[in-house]
Amino acid sequence: MSRPLRAMTVAAAMSTALVLTACSSTETPADAKGGDESWTPVTIEHALGTTTIEEKPERVATVNWANHEVPLALGVVPVGMASADFGDDDGNGVLPWVEDKLEELDAETPALFDETDGIDFEAVADTQPDVILAGYSGLTQEDYDTLSEIAPVVAYPETAWGTPWREMIEINSKAIGLAEEGEELVKDLETEIDSAVADHPAIKDMSTMFLTHVDPSDLSEVNFYTTHDTRAMFFEDLGMQAPASIQKASDETDQFSSTVSAEQADVFDDVDIIVTYGGDDLVTTLEDDELLSQMPAVKNKSIVNLPGDAPLGTAANPTPLSISFVLDDYLDELDKAATAAK
């Protein structure tokens, strides 16, 4: 859909929503949106602009990956959220840890936005949101501008797809007036992580890299996530560290991933553990490759090969609700790889 047509459609959806709201409303002024006199306008600066939320948001919509988990973790059910297109184990568009939380809150599944071809602006407008959360996202400026025609939008603080889970909670919770609750959520998760990590001393200080999805048919390059990516950032939470080789490559880019020719694979001699997506066949492929098989982590079979289309693989990218759901299983896999490396 072209930008002018899309904007017209969004505008039409917004107008219809306003008419329906006006015709059906039986609220008194004190009960209507904005009637909460305790609300103090919230201003949030982010990578795409500055957003001020003038009135207490009652209808919260979220776009892109996992932003809905913040309000849900704090007891607020969004009116709409992105459908899960990765790691969904039963095909209903909702990840299992989100299903569990909705059940806990005795809530129905919110409207699901299909983002296969980008943000569905009309679907977002149809939910009549008061605020749109996208603290962890890859919004373009055009996306942000179009969404801002619907409601105030909170985008990522600095880097697209580079918001750590703590900051995702911080920026999204602040936007809905639950900043203090967000801080408590962060503390609770930190305590839970520290407690679980204490039971896995073998992984402490292990240098770990995360390969992106490997194409077995083309091993001419080594593609990996930099320290700007939340998957790699999570290793530090788990008591591990970025290898010097990965840190050096990360210092040379602001992107969440990078590439090195397989002929230079010896640069990764400082890697103890490799985490990637795939199965046993992928590990065999790496071991059979003349160049990549020389990497110490491959030689030692110190590889965590996560199922890319299952919840465990999905949760390697930590989010507010997924951390608790998979933490023990993830640590068990890392523990096995650490033991093989020693």
Rank of each mutant, 00 (worst) to 15 (best):
M1V: 14
S2V: 06
S2L: 11
L5S: 14
L5W: 13
A11P: 01
M14L: 05
S15I: 15
A17T: 08
L20K: 11
T26N: 12
T28G: 14
P29N: 04
A30M: 13
D31M: 12
A32H: 05
G35S: 06
E37A: 15
W39C: 08
W39F: 03
T43K: 07
T43Y: 07
H46N: 09
H46E: 11
L48R: 02
E54L: 04
P57N: 13
P57A: 14
P57Q: 08
R59N: 04
V63W: 04
V70G: 12
L74I: 07
G80S: 06
D85M: 15
G87V: 07
D90I: 09
G91E: 04
L95K: 09
P96S: 13
L102M: 07
E103N: 11
E103Q: 14
E104K: 10
L105T: 03
L112D: 01
E115V: 01
E115S: 07
G118T: 12
G118N: 10
G118W: 13
D120S: 08
A125I: 03
D126A: 15
T127N: 04
T127I: 06
Q128N: 15
D130Y: 15
L133F: 09
L133A: 09
A134L: 00
Y136S: 00
L139H: 04
Q141F: 06
E142W: 09
E149C: 13
E149F: 11
E149P: 11
I150G: 01
A151N: 06
P152I: 00
T159C: 12
M168F: 08
S173Y: 05
A175W: 00
L178F: 01
E180Q: 14
E183L: 10
E190D: 12
D194F: 13
H200M: 03
P201H: 06
A202E: 00
S207H: 07
L211E: 14
V214A: 03
D215K: 03
P216F: 10
E221F: 14
E221C: 08
F224L: 09
T226N: 06
A232C: 04
A232E: 00
P243G: 05
P243H: 08
A244P: 05
Q247T: 15
E252M: 05
T253A: 06
D254W: 03
F256R: 12
A262P: 07
A265W: 06
D272F: 00
D272E: 09
I273M: 10
I274M: 02
T276E: 05
Y277E: 06
Y277M: 04
G278M: 03
G278E: 04
D280V: 09
V283P: 00
T285Y: 10
D288A: 15
L291G: 14
A297K: 00
A297V: 01
S302E: 02
I303T: 05
N305E: 09
P307E: 09
G313E: 02
T314L: 13
T314D: 10
N317I: 08
T319F: 00
L321R: 03
S324K: 15
Y330K: 15
Y330G: 11
D335M: 02
D335R: 02
K336N: 14
A340D: 11
